[in-house]
């Protein structure tokens, strides 16, 4: 396989006798819009944790931009261009959204150790932070309030802005729409669609509406292994996929936009 943005070879994770992720080989191309779907318990979350380095792999390898990072810790992968959002919000409740993004930007820019000048005297940090919040269409009015008081959908937007502040080449979006009330989910969808094209995105999602609108390629995981991999149309027609989801979810091109 040639050097994609993110590649796994036979990636496996066992917990005791239970194999959560079973020899998964996946390739995310540069600038891809790739989605990873699968019924509950298919091993999606474990797989993301293996990719980001939150947990070590039992076997197999992970390559990021052609370099083997199987043994690299989380923050080293972040530095090499892999960023992720979290499924459950992991934000800074007491900081304002703007402060949180400024923090992320200043750390990426290597300014995090600067103690001798106030943030307010560093307009570049604030400018970049605002640009990122603009990119995810975070409303200007809410940028200085408490993050803890934000609506759930807004917190998801901030979550994406924080990941983008890392200037990633590969972005893992772990269920960005999960738990977002329908009224706010359009905001999240728009933010995801507006992601820069030079960033490869791997979307892990339950919301089929979002997946089929967004993805140009879909990988289906079932019982820890790859069940199918291909273009959205082919996946939607694949009988094995239908079977895997049978009774749990309706999958079909015809339903896109209504699901």
């Amino acid at each position: 396989m040639s050097g994609g943005a993110l590649q796994t070879q036979g990636l496996t994770r066992r917990f005791g006798t239970f194999t959560a992720v079973d020899k998964v080989s996946l390739s995310v191309a540069e600038g891809a819009r790739h989605a990873l779907i699968g019924p509950n318990g298919a091993g999606k979350t474990t797989f993301v944790n293996l990719l980001s380095g939150a947990i070590p792999a039992s076997a197999g390898s992970v390559a990021l931009l052609g370099e083997d990072v199987t043994a690299a810790p989380q923050h080293a992968r972040v530095r090499r261009g892999l960023a992720r959002t979290f499924q459950v919000n992991q934000l800074f409740a007491e900081l304002s959204p703007r402060e949180a993004v400024v923090l992320a930007v200043s750390e990426r820019a290597g300014a995090g150790g600067t103690w001798w000048r106030p943030v307010s005297s560093m307009p570049a940090l604030r400018g970049e932070a605002d640009a990122l919040l603009d990119l995810v269409r975070f409303p200007i009015a809410g940028r200085d309030g408490r993050t803890g008081a934000l609506a759930y959908g807004r917190q998801r937007l901030l979550e994406i802005a924080l990941a983008l502040a890392m200037k990633p080449r590969v972005l893992l979006l772990d269920e960005p729409a999960a738990g977002v009330p329908p009224a706010e989910s359009r905001e999240v969808l728009e933010a995801v669609s507006a992601l820069p094209r030079d960033v490869a995105v791997l979307l892990i999602e339950h919301d089929m509406d979002l997946v089929f609108r967004f993805a140009e390629r879909i990988t289906v995981l079932a019982q820890g292994a790859v069940l199918a991999d291909g273009e959205p149309n082919a996946i939607a027609r694949d009988p094995r996929v239908k079977e895997a989801y049978l009774g749990t979810m309706e999958v079909g091109v015809g339903e896109v936009g209504h699901g």
Binding site: H75, Q90, L91, E107, T114, W115, W116
Partner: peptide, 28 residues
């Protein structure tokens, strides 16, 4: 006052607020 208003001070508040998330932003 200067230190707490600096990027360094901001990173301390970030660590205080969410010690598990801070490393994911590259905070040592």
């Amino acid at each position: 006052k200067l230190i707490v208003a600096s990027p360094y001070g901001l990173s301390l508040r970030g660590i205080n607020g969410n010690p598990r998330r801070a490393p994911a932003l590259g905070v040592p």
